[in-house]
């Protein structure tokens, strides 16, 4: 069912006779569209392209007076980063934290979203809003209480501690996006299940959850990306555990920025994320297409 809406509907055949001008416009439209889409792609790519070229330059070339588009690429920065080895620790920590955060956020967020979307109860909208509001507090005010709480409970500098913090940050987005997907499901789904004698939980678990799988994949990727790139809490709540954003920030030093190592690490760390996104990208778009079941 989901596949049906995946095949988008390009340039439909128009049944009316067309004037030559309109015909020309219709013929050019796809190219104009393509031009805009690729222009936007270049806008998205250019800073990353520039970062990537810096990772292949000596610092003296990276800062050159006339920006150098053509240069002799060197791999020293990559070799230095790989040889130093810290990058693998950052990568490992980030992977553990981001995957665990995603799993826990989904496990906690999906039931919440389901109930908020499908069941009327007193305070439903207030509860939903409270969930949303947990993302609103500016972190500056939260840092000290959070830190004290973590030191007291022994969560400081532990994987579970960091995962819990990331879950708290991401839960609202999981709940609200999943809520949207569940709302688009027809209520006949559960009603039919109840007729067959299913319990509330079975209706959720066996009927709605499978249909929502693509949506879950989409939210999973967003939650993964948000956790992967989270900086402030990862910084304050850890000492020894270092995630990628915190680790990479250490290339920005006092009176020196290690451009080569910073850019090479950033490019390296883009690879696993891209692989993750690439594998899930079909689900990603399909996942946001829950209306397919209508």
């Amino acid at each position: 069912m989901a596949e049906m809406t995946m095949t988008s509907s390009p340039d439909r055949v128009n049944l009316r006779p067309l004037s030559p001008a309109t015909r020309l416009a219709r013929a050019l439209a796809p190219w104009a569209r393509r031009l805009i889409l690729w222009a936007f792609a270049i806008w998205c790519l250019f800073p990353i392209y520039w970062l990537a070229t810096m990772s292949l330059k000596r610092q003296v070339d990276a800062m050159a007076r006339t920006p150098r588009f053509w240069f002799q690429p060197i791999w020293d920065n990559y070799l230095a980063v790989i040889k130093a080895g810290d990058i693998w620790n950052y990568f490992g920590s980030s992977l553990i934290v981001a995957l665990a955060t995603t799993a826990v956020a989904l496990a906690l967020g999906i039931p919440t979203a389901y109930v908020l979307a499908r069941y009327r109860f007193r305070g439903n909208s207030d509860f939903g809003f409270w969930i949303l509001s947990t993302r609103m507090t500016p972190p500056v005010a939260m840092l000290i209480p959070f830190f004290v709480l973590y030191v007291r409970t022994g969560l400081m500098d532990t994987y579970p501690g960091l995962v819990i913090a990331h879950v708290a940050i991401n839960l609202s987005i999981v709940v609200w996006l999943m809520k949207g997907f569940f709302e688009d499901l027809p209520s006949e789904l559960e009603e039919a299940a109840f007729m067959d004698g299913a319990t509330y939980f079975q209706a959720f678990r066996q009927i709605c959850l499978p249909v929502a799988l693509p949506g879950i994949a989409a939210v999973a990727i967003l939650s993964f990306l948000f956790s992967w790139n989270e900086f402030l809490f990862s910084l304050v709540l850890t000492n020894e555990i270092r995630t990628v954003p915190v680790g990479l920030y250490s290339f920005v030093g006092y009176q020196q920025v290690r451009w080569g190592e910073l850019s090479a690490s950033a490019v390296l760390m883009l690879v696993p994320v891209l692989a993750f996104v690439f594998i899930f990208q079909k689900q990603l778009v399909r996942g946001l297409t829950m209306g397919a079941t209508k």
Partner: peptide
């Protein structure tokens, strides 16, 4: 409505969210 290279475009559009912010 696009038909060509859609998955490549989608991947490119996601890059700004995927790169480590400090580097960007």
């Amino acid at each position: 409505h696009e038909t060509r290279a859609v998955s490549a475009l989608r991947l490119i559009y996601l890059l700004p969210m995927a790169i480590t912010p400090v580097a960007a």
